[in-house]
């Protein structure tokens, strides 16, 4: 037991808090630097109506998917099926408009999000009840959901002309110069961030990821929480799917393929620990913005195509190394704090 003479709120906690915030601040700083550099090379990157719009619009859908992914990662699981879920719901969205002319847009949203949620729930049930690692389960459903998509779509594709104008407008329209898509992503982000920080459910996600065995001993409802995490991830990928349809208008059977890796990458870059328990949906969201903004900035900065993918790789590895270094430093400080007190 500590025989400390310091006040309960010691400097250590403050310093540690600073490190934690520094992680998200660092990634935000990197984003600002990228934007400044790209703008310096070509002022239109930021200071033009299109530049500003693209900056906000491009990452919006990935932000949604990355938020869902972050929630799953925080519970020490992973959802590799999000790209397939997104593709499948995007196609479903198109079919709904074609097969049920005049269907209200809001109904399409509800159906697509619910559909994504069901797909996520299937993942969650397999992970929670079959006790198979999420990596394996969701790798399986990645192919399974994509397979269903290919079976359903065939060589068919949905074109912008099949979709109602008012729906397509959602994908491009702005409100006070801010794209609607970005506003939706931001609202979801704020709600998810609040939930993860301030509710029992949110905190239990962190607890489960921090030490699953302890979560069992605490009597937490681990199964229920895992189902919820996968449900949320699926539902957000579903929402992403509707918005994908609105934004791009063209949907074939390969829509959203590869997005799972971008989502995991965004979360990791944003400081979500791959082993769970650490990170925030805010970090993951900023990571998503950084990832896609870099992709757009590199050509402007004159960096050859070949290097662009490599930069993303460096970013991910760099983020993981940074997290590891910070974790080791934090551990040392915490032990020092204990010995001091």
């Amino acid at each position: 037991m500590s025989t400390a003479t310091t006040t309960p709120t010691s400097n250590v906690t403050k310093r540690l808090g600073a490190i934690g915030k520094a992680r998200e601040f660092g990634i935000l700083l990197a984003l600002v630097i990228v934007i400044i550099a790209a703008t310096a090379a070509n002022p239109n990157f930021l200071f033009s109506a299109d530049g500003w719009r693209d900056l906000l619009l491009t990452p919006s859908i990935l932000v949604l998917v990355a938020v869902g992914q972050a929630i799953v990662l925080i519970t020490r699981n992973v959802d590799l099926s999000v790209g397939s879920v997104l593709g499948l719901t995007a196609y479903l969205t198109g079919r709904l408009f074609i097969d049920f002319p005049g269907i209200p847009i809001i109904a399409v949203f509800v159906i697509a999000v619910a559909f994504g949620g069901v797909l996520g729930l299937i993942n969650g049930a397999l992970v929670a009840f079959a006790k198979v690692p999420a990596m394996v389960i969701t790798l399986g459903t990645l192919y399974a959901y994509r397979g269903i998509n290919v079976l359903w779509t065939g060589s068919d594709r949905i074109n912008a002309s099949d979709l109602p104008k008012s729906f397509l407008a959602l994908g491009t329209e702005q409100f006070l110069t801010i794209p609607i898509l970005t506003i939706i992503a931001l609202v979801v982000l704020i709600i998810a961030g609040w939930y993860m920080k301030n509710t029992r459910g949110g905190r239990e996600f962190y607890a489960i990821g921090s030490d699953p065995a302890a979560a069992e001993l605490y009597g937490l409802r681990v199964t229920r929480r895992l189902l919820t995490a996968f449900l949320l991830s699926g539902a957000l990928a579903g929402l992403g799917g509707v918005l994908y349809a609105a934004r791009y208008g063209t949907i074939n059977s390969q829509a959203g393929s590869g997005w799972e890796l971008d989502a995991v990458g965004a979360a990791v870059i944003g400081g979500v620990a791959i082993v769970g328990g650490v990170g925030s949906v805010w970090g993951a969201a900023i990571g998503a913005v950084l990832l896609l903004t870099i992709n757009r900035a590199l050509p402007i900065l004159g960096i050859p195509d070949f290097w662009q993918r490599a930069v993303v790789g460096v970013l991910i590895i760099g983020a993981i190394v940074l997290d590891r270094v910070l974790a080791v430093r934090q551990k040392r400080k915490l032990i020092e704090a204990r010995d001091d007190s």
């Binding site: 037991m1 310091t6 709120t9 250590v12 551990k331 915490l334 704090a337």
Partner: peptide, 16 residues
């Protein structure tokens, strides 16, 4: 006892 309630549990002694 005097344990900082805001610090993470990581790194605490067994006694704490």
């Amino acid at each position: 006892v005097r344990i900082d309630p805001d610090r993470p549990a990581d790194g605490l002694s067994i006694a704490d």
